[in-house]
């Protein structure tokens, strides 16, 4: 804060490269990420050392400290795989396998992403619809809103596997059940955000439209909808992230057939920790990409609506 305030009269060009890097977010983020990786390595060494020691004792080997550390980081089934092992596995399963092959992580990510996106679209649609109804019908707001909030305190994610199996018994299988879980999770932030957004226009503006004798419909399209868009995109970022989580958990009961969730499950069945971590990182990458996509759409929308694109975030 204070450095910004003091540096502001100085022109940008006179600021050193170092101080510019310090005031931005890129360098701090890099430092934090490097710190996390360092902690990860230390944790990997300490958590794997017990097993390594017993291995060495059995082999009657007396490795030097360096050798010992290197071997803890390269076990076949480590308690905590080291970052480079995970990176290697990621590289191997992403780039060295055919996309259609069952060993390709891209294939599994695709299997998970399809229901994520479908569920996200359905959830966003449902959220907008509910919010529109709630804003316009008083009795709906009073009776439905408390239940919408309560619906989220129910750990639905915990029963997602069961919902999938029940739907399977009814004959609904494939993409739709997982998408339904994603929808259930993602409609909530959109509903809450949109109720706020559709109510966000000024009283003055609403009154102005009333003096124009505009219909409810016109007020909706010309005032409420445009002013709710920033709220919509903010809640869509939350919604797409949890809809990915919903799809992953939805894959757990299908008996580890395909998808990132299935990879997690099969990894945990067979003790393939490297597999679990690479699936986790892939999921993290997907989540980041999806949120970034919504962010891009938001920037595009802002520019189209004549607002200056927000820097960063």
């Amino acid at each position: 804060m204070t450095t910004d305030a003091m540096a502001s009269p100085v022109s940008k060009s006179r600021k050193g490269l170092m101080s510019r890097a310090l005031s931005g977010t890129v360098l701090p983020v890099i430092v934090v990420v490097l710190g996390i990786i360092a902690i990860w390595y230390v944790a990997a060494i300490s958590m794997n050392s017990t097993f390594q020691r017993s291995l060495d004792a059995r082999a009657e080997a007396t490795p030097s400290t360096v050798e010992f550390v290197v071997s803890t980081l390269n076990q076949e089934r480590p308690v905590l795989p080291s970052p480079h092992q995970v990176a290697e596995n990621l590289w191997d399963t992403v780039f060295n396998k055919k996309i259609t092959s069952k060993r390709s992580l891209v294939y599994h990510a695709g299997v998970t992403l399809a229901p994520t996106l479908l569920g996200f679209l359905m959830g966003t649609g449902l959220g907008i619809l509910l919010a529109t109804i709630i804003v316009h019908v008083l009795s709906m707001e009073k009776s439905l809103m408390p239940w919408i909030i309560t619906s989220q305190t129910i750990p639905i994610l915990a029963i997602a596997p069961m919902v999938i199996l029940v739907l399977d018994a009814v004959g609904i299988r494939g993409l739709l059940p997982k998408a339904l879980i994603s929808m259930y999770l993602s409609f909530f932030p959109v509903t809450v955000g949109m109720v706020k957004g559709l109510r966000s226009p000024d009283k003055m503006h609403l009154d102005l439209l009333r003096t124009y004798n505009s219909s409810t419909w016109q007020t909706f399209w010309k005032l409420r909808w445009p002013s709710s868009l920033p709220y919509l995109f903010t809640s869509m970022k939350v919604a797409i992230a949890i809809s990915l989580i919903g799809a992953i958990v939805g894959e757990l009961p299908t008996g580890a057939v395909a998808g990132l969730g299935a990879r997690l499950l099969s990894g945990s069945y067979y003790g393939q920790t490297v597999l679990i971590w690479s699936a986790l990182l892939m999921a993290a990458f997907c989540a980041a990409m999806l949120v970034a996509l919504v962010g891009l759409a938001e920037n595009w929308m802002r520019r189209r609506m004549g607002e200056k694109a927000e820097a960063g975030s």
């Binding site: 983020v29 996390i36 994610l157 989580i245 992953i248 990132l260 989540a287």
Partner: peptide, 16 residues
């Protein structure tokens, strides 16, 4: 540094 990383981490499927 932590805020963007934390924000991203909140969006991750940590349940995995």
């Amino acid at each position: 540094g932590l805020l963007p990383v934390g924000n991203m981490a909140s969006a991750l499927p940590i349940i995995g």
